[in-house]
Nucleic acid binder design. Structure first.
Length: 602
RNA sequence: GGGGUGGUAGUUAAGUCGGUUAUAACGUCGGCCUGUCACGCCGAAGGGCGCGGGUUCGAGUCCCGUCCACCCCGCCA
């Protein structure tokens, strides 16, 4: 048992002693961060989550402590008592506590440590696989401690902000009824109801709307959500949302509430003033200029649509162009100005990337003298008129390169949107962190309510069936569903979707029409959303809401390069936890209790 | 489901046209050192190259399969 823990109180953290404390008797607890043993003088950097303090052992301070200090190794957990002394001429300006050191009179080793799989240093020197397998050691690294402390601060500021503004923090269930559509759910077998399953909530969506019907008016929650979809750099199977719902509000009211939070977070955590209100862009415009609904506005290389140009020249004699037009395809390009040279090898790599996304290839043309094309198989077939018209449409000058895609709109957009990002990174167009102007927030607004699903040849809800259409578009519900815009909005930051929400459809009559368009009949609607439909009939207030991806916000705020870095115990891309081994096997007995059979090897 | 990158001491990496005993740094172990803070100096241990096949006189290097990790597409209302 530890004498020092029982008898002495920790007086300071390892990050706070300064010249003003010289002469004080102090007690510090922490980990041996590094050790410099000079025989008669032993220097230890002692670390806790607040910082590092140098502690010194010499026989003249205390014989016993000095002898014991010879046994210290990295990551031993120790307690020291001693006197704060000035370092005199040996000040270390790189350390916050570099003006002082502690001359130790008492040392206790609370616990030893075996040699570590990797060093506890800020500079990442271990592969993520190793770090994740020993996450508790990885989290000791000061850089990781700062990330999680920032995360904690975000939570605290968010709670303060919403509480101050009259929001109630209310909880919703995680174990919910499975409803089809949307993200794939994790299913949880229910022991007491044989053959039945709960779903883990993919979001509190329906419940927060019911809070509005119940009259709670302003709700927020920092809530865990679960989605059984494939993972990405910015996607984990469980993640945290800052979830918000408000009654008697317009879209502008919701924007104002969220902008206040964003400005507060950026001010408090980075000292950055975010100018409000945040800019807005129509969904259509975003698709046209950037090929997706989450544009990174930190650089140009915007898309240029030259479909009409090709059309008006009837394909210009290029068979592939003519075929694309016949199939209703579109043509879009990115102009690469001549100062950003791309080698043949670069272009081959880009083409490979494009093919990986379903493209046939990467169209390209180098602009030469008098608008001539080279480095392209189209150079011979294309008519002079069309070639010059495309150059003009793209604003391409001699020495520029245009890269383009043609075909199905979804493919063209996907390929060029990614190509734009790849080129932006390659050309170093993204402003470095801390340079100013690097926080490009954007509301993307007024997307279509429906999308046409090519597979089933039906209209499906682009987001969900409870989003309020624009009143002016109601007439199109029957005649031309693709034209119906809705009060749906995404908050985008630097190419990441950090939040999304909508004004909800609270009018049962319009709701009925929406279901009709979707081909959902009364019975099906009842079965899927019965309780919500009921609720909407019993005096549902006009309401709307939004959810911010808290993890993504934290990732961007801290400059972390992956969502995994700001989640304490994350999963790999295949959904496994390398430390615990989850997901794991269970016994036949457990399965039997749950009335579950598994199909092996199928 | 598809496209791509990677896997070599505890860790991070090098390893050329296939060729003796597979390198280095950090860490570890032993010794020395009173002003270090990437401490220094002397010495030592530690891997057979993700796994399984194959080609070859000979494979870390070539081929096939497979596992794991990462990045992207699909997917994520």
């Amino acid at each position: 048992m530890s004498k020092m823990i029982d008898e002495l109180k920790r007086t300071h953290s390892c990050g706070e002693l300064t010249a003003a404390d010289v002469g004080k008797q102090v007690v510090l607890f922490g980990w041996v961060h590094s050790r410099r043993d000079h025989g008669k003088a032993v220097f230890i950097d002692l670390r806790d989550r607040m910082g590092i303090t140098q502690v010194v052992f010499e026989p003249r301070f205390a014989e016993g402590a000095h002898t014991l200090a010879g046994d210290l190794r990295l990551e031993y957990v120790i307690g020291v008592r001693g006197t704060v002394e000035s370092r005199g001429g040996n000040v270390n300006p790189k350390m916050k506590t570099g003006e002082i050191e502690v001359h130790v009179t008492d040392l206790e080793i609370f616990n030893k440590s075996e040699p570590l799989p990797f060093l506890i240093e800020d500079e990442i020197n271990a592969e993520e696989t190793t770090r994740l397998a020993y996450r508790y050691l990885d989290l000791r690294r000061p850089a990781m401690q700062r990330l999680l402390m920032t995360r904690s601060k975000i939570n605290q500021l968010t709670r303060d902000y919403f509480s101050r503004n009259g929001f109630l923090e209310l909880e919703t269930p995680f174990l919910v009824k499975y409803t089809p559509g949307g993200a794939r759910n994790f299913l949880v077998p229910c022991r007491v109801a044989p053959g039945k399953f709960y779903a883990l909530a993919e979001s509190p969506q329906l419940f927060k709307q019911l809070f509005m019907v119940a009259g709670f008016d302003r709700y927020f929650q920092l809530v865990r959500c679960f989605r059984d979809e494939d993972l990405r750099l910015d996607r984990q199977p469980e993640f945290t949302q800052i979830d918000v719902e408000m009654s008697f509000v317009t879209q502008d009211d919701i924007f104002a509430a969220m902008e206040g939070l964003v400005a507060l977070l950026w001010k408090e955590l980075l000292g950055v003033d975010i100018p409000l209100p945040l800019p807005r862009m129509e969904f259509d415009e975003s698709m046209r200029r950037f090929g997706n609904d989450k544009p990174d506005l930190r650089f140009g290389l915007e898309h240029i649509d030259f479909t009409d140009v090709v059309k008006s020249h009837a394909g210009g004699g290029v068979p592939l162009f003519e075929a694309t037009l016949a199939q209703g395809g579109i043509f879009k390009a990115i102009r690469v100005p001549k100062e950003y040279a791309l080698s043949r090898k670069d272009l081959d790599e880009l083409e490979k990337e494009a093919k990986g996304m379903g493209s046939m290839g990467l169209g390209r043309a180098k602009i030469g003298e008098a608008g001539a094309w080279s480095q392209t198989p189209f150079a011979k077939a294309i008519s002079d008129d069309l070639r010059l018209a495309i150059n003009a449409a793209c604003g391409a000058q001699e020495g520029d390169l245009i890269v383009f895609q043609m075909g199905r709109p979804a493919m063209v957009h996907a390929v060029l949107a990614n190509l734009r990002l790849t080129l932006g990174k390659k050309f170093g167009l993204i402003p470095p962190y801390g340079s100013g102007g690097q926080w490009r927030f954007l509301w993307v607004v007024n997307p279509p309510l429906f999308e046409f699903d090519e597979e089933s040849k039906t209209w499906v809800a682009a987001h969900h069936a409870f989003t309020r259409p624009h009143d002016a578009d109601l007439a199109f519900l029957d005649s031309d569903p693709g034209k119906v815009k809705c009060y749906r909005y995404d908050l985008v930051l630097n190419g990441f979707e950090i939040g999304g929400g909508s004004i909800r459809l609270h009018d049962p009559e319009v709701q009925k029409k929406v279901f009709q368009t979707l081909g959902i009949d009364e019975a099906e609607a009842r079965q899927k959303f019965g309780f919500l439909l009921d609720a909407l009939r019993f005096g549902a207030p006009p309401h709307g809401g939004i959810a911010l991806g808290m993890d993504r916000v934290a990732m961007l705020l801290t400059g972390a390069s992956s969502l995994r870095d700001i989640v304490a115990f994350p999963k790999t891309l295949r959904g496994t936890d390398l430390m615990t081994g989850a997901p794991g096997d269970v016994s036949d007995r457990q399965l039997k209790d749950l009335h579950v059979q598994t199909v092996k090897g199928a």
